[in-house]
Design a protein around this nucleic acid. Structure first.
Lengths: 154, 154
DNA sequence: CTGGTTGCAAACAATTTGCAACCCA
DNA sequence: TGGGTTGCAAATTGTTTGCAACCAG
């Protein structure tokens, strides 16, 4: 609806998601709707995890309903287009999965001003395998976030 | 109230908390009340993080109100007697801090049956310092939990 | 046309809070 | 006695869901 959108096929750089969306959605006989594209657009512009409410604010209440955002995030998450994060405040945050697959990374959040910094240091997968071996568990995953006080807030 | 309680001073083993509680509470001019001791007792018996609601069930609704448990957990957490965990389901869980200080550990949760296994493998503190150095952040902390499918559920 | 989607409002669930009665120190 | 505490109920807030109107394919 009344909002500019990347209908051009001139993919700037890491903008795979739009097409990935179409493919994956089609695979599940789901539809490519306005709200879904709008949400992806918001996520594509932001580099840090967003709250559902934040996504709503970026869109404007007229463009999409909060319930729709919740439902969309479930879907996008299941399709692997979006990843859910937990910053310890009990509010779900979502970030676009840029690379095709394992763009696995973590965040460093300032406990004072909530600034978020991306952490490239990936958690030692070796250790994860050790744990798997010792416990007998399979399909190991982990959630890891760092907290601290950023330079400005110290 | 009509419920047995450890009024005896025969500390079995790792039962520092009871005294630690008294000391720390006194330090803040707080009171050692029945509900607080009862909650600590429950936590002392359990080896895994408990939900506030689970704590309530262990106590019985007559012994302590849910709101009191929430308030107590805030207090106990601030005093460092209890540690809060996040298993990804948006429900806070609390575990007694056994050792005096850094009993820092993590958990491995089965995504099928919710079984919890304690993980001794502590996260490399060295890496945390590297992150601190690179980011300029101070007072680094981290939250880390593992997920997988336990042997029985595979 | 038609089944997946959306908006809106009601339903839920975890957590918080106001306030009068209550109790540890 | 008195200020910290508790119980109870109401209020908040994040998230889910029922349902009729809608729209992409």
């Amino acid at each position: 609806m009344g909002k500019h959108r990347h209908d051009d096929h001139s993919h700037g750089h890491t903008d795979v998601p739009l097409d990935a969306l179409k493919d994956k959605l089609r695979a599940g006989s789901r539809k490519i709707t306005g709200p879904r594209q709008a949400i992806l657009d918001v996520l594509r512009r932001e580099s840090h995890p967003l709250t559902n409410r934040e996504i709503l604010q970026h869109l404007g209440h007229e463009e999409c309903d909060l319930a729709t955002i919740y439902r969309s995030m479930h879907l996008l998450g299941a399709l692997g287009l979006v990843r859910k994060y937990d910053f310890g405040d009990g509010i779900a945050r979502f970030e676009l999965v840029r690379g095709d697959d394992e763009t696995h990374h973590h965040h460093l959040i300032c406990t004072a001003c909530a600034t978020v910094v991306e952490i490239d240091e990936c958690f030692p997968t070796a250790l994860e395998q050790t744990i798997a071996a010792q416990s007998g568990f399979s399909k190991l995953t982990h959630k890891l976030e760092f907290f601290g006080v950023c330079p400005k807030c110290q």
